[in-house]
């Protein structure tokens, strides 16, 4: 059965309508969970609000476990889906840069769009920053072109690299995520007691 578009069950003409609808659902979930507030998001780094960790980790484990069931029941062929390629060095460097951007800006691209929608000027500036950042990147691209393509490992999954079945990773992530939910619940309570200025 799935994926529907690569298997030709839905033709390409519907592509953009589907994109819009999926985007609306995505934006709705992000905003409704409180991701339109940079202070909510940044709270994950200071222990006063773990909403990012909760939503993000829940989504990852639900999707991971769900994929395995979908694959088992034959609804989705996991061999045909897009696996993000791995470029070891560039990805680590890029993520570190993004980490700085995350703490400074308090948004990530998706959440900043929803925050603009409800009138946050800082989100608008963040998106302008994204534009400028990508522009700088592409103008300076020749300087680090070799690095950009280095460390290529292909479109590999964790199972491809380690030989351990995907179910182990799904289970490990689930255990880690669930444990972190309980631990952060306690941390959050403690931290909130000591912060007076911020209304939760």
């Amino acid at each position: 059965m799935g994926p529907l578009i690569p298997n030709g069950i839905i033709t390409g003409n519907w592509d953009f309508v589907i994109a819009l609808l999926l985007g609306i659902a995505f934006g709705f979930i992000l905003e409704a969970s409180g991701f339109s507030s940079s202070r909510n998001i940044a709270g994950v780094f200071y222990g006063y609000n773990f909403v990012v960790l909760r939503v993000f980790f829940t989504a990852v484990i639900v999707a991971m476990v769900g994929f395995l069931y979908f694959d088992y029941f034959g609804w989705l062929d996991l061999d045909k889906i897009f696996i993000l390629p791995t470029y070891l060095g560039p990805m680590i460097v890029g993520s570190v840069i993004m980490g700085f951007g995350f703490v400074l800006g308090g948004f990530c691209p998706g959440t900043s769009y929803t925050a603009i929608a409800i009138g946050k000027m800082d989100a608008l500036l963040f998106t302008v920053g994204l534009f400028v950042g990508i522009f700088i990147f592409s103008e300076a691209f020749p300087l680090f072109e070799d690095f950009y393509y280095s460390g290529y490992l292909g479109n590999v999954t964790l199972s491809d690299v380690t030989g351990i079945p995907a179910a182990w990773f799904a289970f490990a992530f689930t255990v880690i995520a669930l444990a972190s939910f309980w631990i952060t619940m306690l941390i959050e309570k403690r931290v909130r007691k000591n912060i007076k200025e911020y209304k939760f």
């Binding site: 400074l104 920053g129 700088i136």
Partner: peptide, 30 residues
């Protein structure tokens, strides 16, 4: 923050939604 995120997302082949969320969920190493 936006500028850094923009630069980083190009090196990382995606941002927190494309790479970290969807990538991890599909068991991608990257």
């Amino acid at each position: 923050g936006g500028i850094l995120f923009g630069i980083g997302s190009q090196f990382g082949r995606g941002c927190s939604s494309g790479a970290a969320l969807a990538g991890s969920a599909t068991f991608s190493l990257g």
